[in-house]
């Protein structure tokens, strides 16, 4: 085994570093140009400023969009986590006909072109005569968050020892009592992780929000509107940097929480697998 371990050709290591640079490079330019005094993002940098960030707080349309995103994100993450808990619990705990099919259906939004999911939901909403609003955006976001919630929660639920639950019910706890006092504390890392991950997805999601919102914009929809004006670019870069920082913080917390739990149960595979 040792010979295999140590046989990491240096080109492979170099490649790995280059690949990570390729992944991060585009992302790094957002914060760099967001503190540049020039209105067009180009090198050489002309000077350091925070004025683009200052302008953000004085834009009412932006603060509205931020508030809308927060509302949508919180509702979508709560709903998708609740739906995810039901489904993950059913899939890991019980055997029933159609289990794999239903699981496949719930994971489907992950591999379908997003525009097709969005457009079909739009058709339903319009033909039902529902007016488009933030609520329809929440419906859309819940649908695309469910696959992520489900995989995080399934790997969290799979890990724990079922005999603890059996012991609890043998000792006279009701089914609900067992869930609340034994199951819930063990699976709460997965639940927190699912909440954070789906909130982040909702916060950054554009296509569903673009099709399903009425007059109220979420942050990505607002950004999309601003991209048409070259003069607004620095503001967009500043906003983008803030969103980026927010997402990374949330995901790092989610990962730490998830890893603490999976160290106990030895699950591999990360957020997606």
């Amino acid at each position: 085994m040792k010979t295999l371990r140590n046989f990491a050709p240096s080109w492979l290591k170099t490649y790995a570093f280059l690949y990570v640079i390729f992944l991060y490079l585009p992302v790094i330019f957002l914060p760099i140009f967001s503190v540049n005094t020039s209105a067009t993002p180009k090198f050489p940098l002309s000077g350091f400023t925070f004025k683009w960030y200052g302008d953000l707080t004085r834009t009412p349309a932006l603060t509205d969009a931020a508030w809308n995103s927060l509302l949508v994100g919180v509702s979508a993450s709560l709903l998708s986590t609740i739906f995810g808990i039901c489904a993950a619990r059913a899939i890991t705990r019980y055997r029933f006909p159609g289990r794999r099919t239903i699981n496949g259906l719930l994971m489907a939004p992950l591999v379908l072109p997003e525009i097709i999911v969005a457009v079909s939901m739009l058709l339903v909403m319009l033909q039902l005569g529902l007016s488009l609003s933030l609520i329809t955006v929440v419906f859309g976001h819940v649908l695309i968050c469910i696959p992520y919630s489900l995989s995080v929660l399934t790997s969290g639920f799979e890990g724990f020892d079922r005999s603890l639950e059996e012991a609890s019910s043998d000792l006279g706890e009701s089914a609900f009592g067992t869930f609340r006092r034994v199951t819930l504390p063990m699976v709460s890392p997965a639940i927190i992780s699912s909440l954070l991950v789906s909130f982040t997805i909702s916060l950054d999601e554009f296509i569903m929000a673009f099709f399903l919102t009425g007059t109220e914009a979420t942050l990505p929809v607002y950004i999309w509107g601003q991209l048409r004006f070259a003069a607004k670019l620095p503001g967009v870069l500043a906003l983008g940097t803030l969103l980026l920082a927010g997402s990374i913080v949330l995901l790092t917390i989610a990962e730490i929480v998830r890893r603490r739990a999976s160290n106990r149960t030895q699950n591999m595979g990360g957020i997606i697998a």
Partner: peptide, 21 residues
Amino acid sequence: EAARGLGLISPTFIYAVIFLV
């Protein structure tokens, strides 16, 4: 067991049917 499993997954399943299928 089958009934319990199906019952528990049904809210999510119905949601996916309404908004996807």
